[in-house]
Amino acid sequence: MASQGTKRSYEQMETDGERQNATEIRASVGKMIGGIGRFYIQMCTELKLSDYEGRLIQNSLTIERMVLSAFDERRNKYLEEHPSAGKDPKKTGGPIYRRVNGKWMRELILYDKEEIRRIWRQANNGDDATAGLTHMMIWHSNLNDATYQRTRALVRTGMDPRMCSLMQGSTLPRRSGAAGAAVKGVGTMVMELVRMIKRGINDRNFWRGENGRKTRIAYERMCNILKGKFQTAAQKAMMDQVRESRNPGNAEFEDLTFLARSALILRGSVAHKSCLPACVYGPAVASGYDFEREGYSLVGIDPFRLLQNSQVYSLIRPNENPAHKSQLVWMACHSAAFEDLRVLSFIKGTKVLPRGKLSTRGVQIASNENMETMESSTLELRSRYWAIRTRSGGNTNQQRASAGQISIQPTFSVQRNLPFDRTTIMAAFNGNTEGRTSDMRTEIIRMMESARPEDVSFQGRGVFELSDEKAASPIVPSFDMSNEGSYFFGDNAEEYDN
């Protein structure tokens, strides 16, 4: 783990906690998980779902989305002020799938948001429990990260689609708070800032007046979040320049895209947490497990152990491969979309394939898809080993990566060399080191050039047997250095459309 220093740990961010010791953190995270579980059980009762239907990941996603929508204050306010045809701002819903006479049927349900809020609060001892809501947002974000390569979004903001390893959390809503900021990748933060800068260039009043003052505060806050992700002084200094700019424009845009590229080699610290679907927490609570009393951590053995003992089902389209669908969801559960496939294969105990080789589309089923041909199958979400999630980018030494994705962002704290394609990355730096950030740029390029592919990161860190909950005997895996390590390699994943 990167030293926490003055930073709060993510469990504290996750639970809005002030400084807590490890036991208190485990208890408050457990409380959050228990609340999600209780809410899910109650919703299944309301909807009269069978046990099997309640364990269907598509039903879980609909129920999670309903509660997130019920608590989305800004959108609710907007919907009330701008009524649109056929949208009731006070209601929320989605597809629920039921097994009827041996076939899967889709039923569109509609609930009062007020009623959903009441059920959620009741499951969370009367609190709004925003930490639990954020947790579900991060699960949705991790699922998107594993399912889609955001080529269009990258290109629109002047970045290269091969930089997708920097895009963790790119679909997280803005209201996801400190826990959300911690899991956002460098590219995601750059993209958010670039969008602001572009608006400022096109709209003279963007930075002016009372609204402009708020915009400015948001801009500086985002700059500080991004600065905190960088691990070298030169990158941090460049972020200070971007933040202090009187009138952010093209120079800042250039600096930010430069920094994003540099992060492929001088990786930023991005938190990883295993956020599971509500249909995993519900049955665990129903079986009598007391998360608050037992304590829970999002970055240790607990999620692995929970998945070892969970039964989750998914709808499967006619030509999809259930094992591939399982891999997709497994990666999402562990926030591992940008991790090295060699490491993932070792931990999972079966070969993890790149996205383009998977015969599976996303987990969600569109409303126009034919239910007649839908089957369902068990998702295999178990693992051979477990490993500690990392909050750091690993040290800054790398190795060759593949054509589709030119770097990785480690999820697990496991000893290995970190793949990246130096030639491709360095070719993108057209040696432009003039301007006010020239000395920093020169320094950053120097550090990137001296990074050695064969150097090892996370020295001495290994994986653990599932029986080793105290992480007492690390097993340090050895990897084939020459092997392909990137998930979005030469990829044809669908595009994420909101």
Rank of each mutant, 00 (worst) to 15 (best):
S170H: 06
Y296D: 08
I109W: 05
R400M: 11
T157S: 10
T360N: 11
M189F: 09
N142D: 11
D160F: 03
A332Y: 00
R213P: 11
A178I: 08
A181F: 06
D302G: 06
R162F: 01
M440E: 13
H324G: 04
M374W: 04
P248G: 07
R174P: 06
N247A: 11
H272K: 03
R150A: 00
G356V: 07
T442H: 00
Q308E: 07
F39Q: 01
Q241R: 08
F71P: 01
M66D: 08
S383M: 04
I33H: 03
N205D: 10
I444H: 04
R38G: 14
D302Y: 11
E107T: 10
Q12E: 05
E11A: 08
K470F: 03
E18G: 09
Q399L: 09
V476H: 01
F458Y: 14
S450L: 13
Q149T: 06
I119R: 08
M196Q: 09
E53T: 01
R446G: 14
L56Y: 01
L315G: 00
G94C: 03
L256T: 01
T411A: 12
G180C: 10
N370R: 05
G349F: 05
R382H: 09
N250C: 00
P89C: 09
G362W: 09
R98G: 07
D468A: 09
R216M: 12
Y78E: 02
V299I: 12
F71V: 09
G300M: 09
A182P: 04
M331D: 01
Q327L: 14
S28E: 10
S314K: 00
E64W: 07
I33C: 15
Q399K: 15
G177W: 07
S326Y: 03
A387Y: 03
L353K: 14
R121H: 07
I388G: 13
K91M: 07
K91A: 03
E64M: 09
L61F: 13
A278Q: 05
I116Y: 01
F253V: 14
N430L: 13
S482R: 11
E454M: 10
V352L: 14
G460I: 00
N202R: 07
P354F: 12
H135R: 03
I444T: 13
E73Y: 02
N397I: 13
L307G: 06
